[in-house]
Design a protein around this nucleic acid. Structure first.
Lengths: 174, 174
DNA sequence: ATGAAATTTCAATAATTACTGAAAATAGAT
DNA sequence: ATCTATTTTCAGTAATTATTGAAATTTCAT
């Protein structure tokens, strides 16, 4: 029974990894990266590159690239055992911490560049006096203000401790 | 000078459309769809399929597919002039309304399916008593709770009037 | 310094996704 | 009911993105 339970757990976990991969692609994240993340999130202990390769049946290059990409997102970290050169990877498992990291990185990679475009388009049409130009300028301004406000909000929320944030949310939406 | 201003506005607008397209791809949205959205967001009046094709130099099929996709997201709407069969497309320009639509659709398309996976993985490991299974179960539970909480929050915020939401945000983060 | 064990890179290829253009279907004016 | 403008579909193709696998590089124990 213990054996059956383990087998069953394994198959559910595999299913989770596969599904997370599919969800990833729908989010615009590459499948392998999402799968590795799911794998490490549900791994009792850190895994080496070779173990990840084996579990997911992927090449070394693929495993390596996506592991490093996940490190870049701050969603996994590298561990080493003393006297070994080999690297092991461990996922951040705390959901609030995960959320914070994703917010931070999305801001850096997606929001900030978008803001730069909006600001530039706004500024370059600042003096124009045709009706069209004024409408364009004001649209850019509204977008810019909204995005920048949203970014600030997420910065604030992401800066809070889990407990504080929950407390706040509860107060808002009892 | 009016002519020069117009020319200049045109080029800035083109730049905006192009940049928005690139940003789109980084968000996992297809380039053309993002470009059409940018084009319509900054168009003084509704555009027909042919006009979109011309502006972006894309095929009819491409224009059609992405226009309909944007309608599906609730980010643009169809207008018809009486006595004409031709359809014209107009973007939602209010940023708060845009935000609401995007929240709604992302919930429907991305969050809800993710929740379904998490719930199933949680439930199917509910009775298991190995340490591994319990850790997996609890990880699924934490993810599920967090995502479902986030979904509820966004539902609440998305249900508010712009003014109310701003008021609230100000109170929080004055 | 050397060698073994690991990581990193990258050109070639596979897989996926986006786009075209023309044919088929549809809807509305007459 | 017919004709025509318009929308819709979709097979073929192009463009993009992901993956492989092997060679190059690095690191560290000896």
């Amino acid at each position: 029974m213990s054996e059956k339970a383990t087998t069953n757990l394994q198959s559910i976990r595999d299913e989770f990894v596969a599904q997370w991969g599919i969800m990833g692609t729908q989010w615009g994240i590459n499948r392998t990266m999402a799968q590795i993340h799911a794998l490490l999130m549900t791994s009792p202990e850190p895994l080496s590159t070779d173990e990840v390769m084996d579990e997911l049946t992927i090449s070394r290059g693929n495993a390596h690239t996506n592991l490093k990409e996940l490190v870049g997102w701050g969603l996994i970290r590298i561990l080493t055992k003393k006297g070994e050169r080999k690297e092991f990877f461990e996922a951040e498992k705390d959901v609030w911490e995960m959320f914070r990291r994703i917010c931070q990185e999305r801001k850096r990679r997606e929001i900030d560049p978008a803001l730069a475009v909006l600001t530039r388009c706004k500024e370059e049409t600042e003096g124009m006096d045709s009706a069209e130009a004024m409408a364009f300028n004001s649209q850019m301004k509204e977008l810019e203000e909204f995005v920048s406000f949203g970014a600030k909000m997420s910065e604030r929320v992401g800066g809070m401790q889990h407990g504080k944030a929950m407390q706040l949310a509860m107060k808002l939406f009892g």
